[in-house]
């Protein structure tokens, strides 16, 4: 169970107010999509959830606790670019995180533990369709494959929250569609919370269970920097009760089919 609460969050750089009065409560297993025009502070909001930046006012709570002051392994991230390590192979990239956690000095696992991790990483790579490229370097992969690798690299840490910063922005439409399906399925399978930033409206409503628009409600033509952006609309794109009843129906159907085939 993961809940995220933003309580009256402001972000200011010197005199310039970027975000103001941001209030948000996010339940467990939501797919939150943040949309808005460029330069309005969507990414700043995501960076605060990542602890890459800190709010100047207000607080962010994860599961009721104040958010850690620096990025930690309970929040995974996929950026638009540069999310994977160029000096490691595909398999090496996926195995990197768990090895760092398990071995503080060497950052490496050996023997049986390594083989177990390798197996786990290969399962995940198979899931994202990169198993046959395991020994290649990221530069040898296409943009879509690199993003799938970045997803696998983040997912092996089993993060409570996965943050996606325009992850499909640099991909062609075909690749983007297959990535949408993959992310949707991974979100269902791993039962985690996803927060994604995009400027593509159709993408937002296709993927998100909840879509928030960030925009400036007020502007002062003489001093545009004095008013920040805030959540201007909040849509429940796929209502929780509908999702739950759908899942329940699917399970019931499954159980019925099993009963029938048993007889």
């Amino acid at each position: 169970m993961t809940t995220i609460v933003l309580d009256d969050v402001w972000k200011e750089y010197d005199d310039r107010i970027v975000l103001e009065r941001v209030n948000l409560t996010l339940d467990d297993h939501e797919f939150l999509v943040i949309i808005g025009p460029s330069g309005v502070g969507k990414t700043t909001l995501l960076r605060m959830l990542l602890s890459q930046e800190r709010p100047t006012r207000g607080r962010i709570l994860i599961d009721g606790e104040p958010i850690a002051p620096e990025p930690t392994h309970d929040r995974g991230v996929v950026f638009q670019r540069y999310s994977v390590f160029p000096h490691l192979t595909v398999l090496g990239n996926v195995m990197r995180g768990p090895q760092w956690l398990a071995s503080p000095i060497l950052g490496r696992l050996f023997g049986a533990k390594r083989r177990a991790l390798e197996e786990q990483a290969m399962t995940l790579l198979t899931r994202v369709g990169l198993a046959e490229h395991a020994s290649k370097y990221p530069q040898q992969l296409s943009g879509g494959m690199q993003q799938r690798l970045a997803l696998a690299q983040a997912l092996i840490m089993k993060p409570k929250v996965l943050l996606l910063d325009e992850p499909f922005g640099a991909l062609d439409p075909g690749t983007r569609a297959s990535m949408h399906t993959l992310v949707r399925e991974l979100w269902e399978e791993n039962e985690m919370t996803i927060v994604m930033v995009t400027h593509d409206l159709s993408e937002a409503f296709l993927l998100g269970t909840r879509v928030i628009a960030v925009d400036r409600p007020r502007t002062d033509p003489q001093a545009p920097e004095r008013f920040g952006a805030t959540i201007s609309s909040d849509f429940e794109a796929k209502s929780r009760i509908v999702r739950q009843s759908r899942r329940f129906e699917a399970e019931r159907q499954n159980a019925r089919l099993q009963l029938i085939s048993a007889h």
Partner: peptide, 21 residues
């Protein structure tokens, strides 16, 4: 790229591990 350093931290790396890894 800054993204790589942030990513490494979300994978649980310490300063020493980021330097060596």
């Amino acid at each position: 790229p800054r993204e790589q350093i942030i990513k490494a931290q979300t994978l649980g790396a310490s300063t020493w591990q980021m330097i060596t890894g």
